[in-house]
Structures are given as C-alpha cells and as structure tokens.
Design a protein around this nucleic acid. Sequence first.
DNA 1: ACATATATTGAGCAAGCGCTCAATTATTGC
DNA 2: GCAATAATTGAGCGCTTGCTCAATATATGT
Lengths: 191, 191
Amino acid sequence: MAKGPERRKRIVESAVEVILEVGLRAATTRAVTEKAGVGTGLLNHYFRWPELRALAWAQIFAAVAEDQFDSEDDPAAALEHYFSTAFVPQARRFWHLWLEASELAASDDDMKAAFRAVSEREWGILEAVLAAGVVRECWSLPDPQATALRLGALYDGLAGRLLSPADNLDADLAEAHLRHAFALECSASGA
Amino acid sequence: MAKGPERRKRIVESAVEVILEVGLRAATTRAVTEKAGVGTGLLNHYFRWPELRALAWAQIFAAVAEDQFDSEDDPAAALEHYFSTAFVPQARRFWHLWLEASELAASDDDMKAAFRAVSEREWGILEAVLAAGVVRECWSLPDPQATALRLGALYDGLAGRLLSPADNLDADLAEAHLRHAFALECSASGA
DNA sequence: ACATATATTGAGCAAGCGCTCAATTATTGC
DNA sequence: GCAATAATTGAGCGCTTGCTCAATATATGT
C-alpha cells in the first residue's frame, strides 16, 4: 500500500488544509509536511513551494466557483443564490485568501497564473448569468457585461470592508447594498 | 548640529520613502536605517518596527486624503476631482499600500489602529461631499450615506482589479464605471 | 571640571524560512 | 535473486528578519 504518488496527493491535500487554516501568507512547507506526515524532502521532491501553494489555492477556488452559482439553468435562482450567500460568515476565509492571492500575484508568477484563470472564470460566470437573465426576461440590463463588472467590483469592495478593521458595515447591510446596486442597474433600462 | 530627536524625524522620513519605494511588506528595518544613515540600534531605541511602520503609513495617507478632495467648498468640483484622479497611474502605489495595510491590519494592532483612523476619515469625507451636493442641489440622492458607501466600495473593487493580473480593465474604463455608478445613484431619486 | 543622562553604534543572537543532499528504504523489470 | 530506479528521510545550509546589548560618543546641569 501507499505506492507511488499517493503521497503526492496527500501533500496537495495537506497544503489545501493548511492554507484554509492559516492563510496563504502564513502557510509554510513545514506545516504542510507535518500535516501530511512526510519528510520535508518529499515536498521538494515533487514541488517547489510557490508551485504547490498556487496549485492548492487554485484547487480551493475551483470548488468555490462551483458553489457560488449552483443553479444550472435558472438565472434568477443563480443570482439569488449569489446574493444570499455572498456575505455569509463562512465566506470570510475565502475573501481573505482572495486578497492574499491578489497581492502575492504581484511577485509570484505561479500565483499570477492561477489568479488570472480563476478570476476570469468567475467573472465570466457572473456575466453569463446576467446575460442569460436578460434573454429570459428575468430582468433587463442595457449592458450586462458592464453590470457584471461593476457588480463584481462592488462585491470585492464590500467584502474588503467587511474584512477590514473599519466597521462601517455588517454582512446584512453589505448584502442589501449589493442587491440595491443591482436594482439600480435594472432600473436604468427604462425605454 | 544634529542634536536630540532630529535623527528620529529622519528615521520616520526614511521609513516613508522606503515604504513608498518597495511597499509595506517588503520594507525592512535595515533598509530604513541604511537610507537614514544611522545604526540599526537607533531605530529600535526610538521605535518598534510595527509601530514605526504604521506611523509612516499613516503619514503617507494623511497626505493622500488631503489631495483626494482638494476643492474645499464646491461639492461638484470636489467630486469631479475625485473621479478624474481616482485611477491615474500615480495612484497605483497607493492602492497597493492600501491593500497591504488592510491585510497587515489582521495581525498587526498598530496597523489596525492606523487603518481604522484613515479609512474612517476618508469615508467620512466622501459622505460629506455627497451630502453637501444634495443640499446645494448639485445632484440629488435618496440616501447620500448609502451612496457614499457603495461608491467607495466600488472604487476599492475597481482599484483592486486594476492591480490584479486579470486585465478586464484599464484606468479609463474604471473611471467610466465609477461615474456611471454615480449617475445611476442619482437617477434613482426620481420623485 | 565632573558627573549624569542621553544618543548612537554595529556585531551578533535567535528564530524563521525554503530548500539541498547524502543516506536509506521500497519498488520494479529482467 | 539482483541490479536499477524511484521514493523517502531529516539534519542542516544559507539567508533574512527584528531586535539586543555592551561599548562609546555626545550633550547637559551644576
């Protein structure tokens, strides 16, 4: 048992767990090897740390992207799900990981590539949902692509404020602001 | 010459310069003492590093806040200045410092206090400008405070995307989006 | 002058990091 | 069985970090 690259998988899984527990910045190779129960050399046999870190991060956010818009074919339900889960307490750790990745990407090419891929995918999904809702007349928007960008950016900004020590805001208010902004976008389409 | 705490000031100034050059995260005590031309011990005689770092950061953003809304008494001009300078290339380093501070604040009490003070001040200024514009009938807004929050959060989000490796966006587009969002806020006040 | 307090230095400590590498164990092909 | 190959170990290297501390220079008060 425990043949070839089974330990490799364990290392990636442990990296995911460590990152979820302590964040991207505080995660260390030693914490990962310790959690995986392997020698420090094995991690470096399979990976370089920036590479493994980016891989684990991407894996985390691949799962997040799936959860964020789970209603496959109903734009209204998908957007409702997006709004209602946007600021739940469990999401905090993911905003934090998102911000850390955004910063790390400035000096880390592996993170840069991972961040690019994930953020473009997430942006694309929101855009698709908004556009689909227009086609199906769930709502009307003059420019769904522009609305997707503004709504996504507003989401980032609100999440950032919820994380920051300045407490202008709580989760319910943030959600209300996001919904309000969307309502404004829709109201601008009066013929 | 160079009596008492003249060197103290030099150390703070050097800290400001170093932080502007390399960012909060990459700034080190050694870089500061080297730039100030003093021994490493002197920095620790006057400060602890987190303390000095937060002090220098706060000093930087005290100056930024002044520049951001310089038209003293004309809300329309102040907001126009806010929009037109929001995404100029020179501002990049400040968004970066802002994000770094926001993250550091999670684990650094000195930064937490500094960030709190600066962000509350900046948020208050935007709110005051928007409210003043309503009074003077430059524009009309149902809830200037809420608009200030959404506009500020959108600004943060757009700046974050301009910094991030995902290039959905350029500075001109970001400015257009910010102006558009404000226009939507105003259009919602139809009686 | 002299004593006292303050300013200032920089070698070096302790801790943390990613990563190397010779040695050891396990697996595989013939 | 027996090489050859791959997997695995962990002490330890090299580097960086903030910070200490005994030693020295400078200023101050009487």
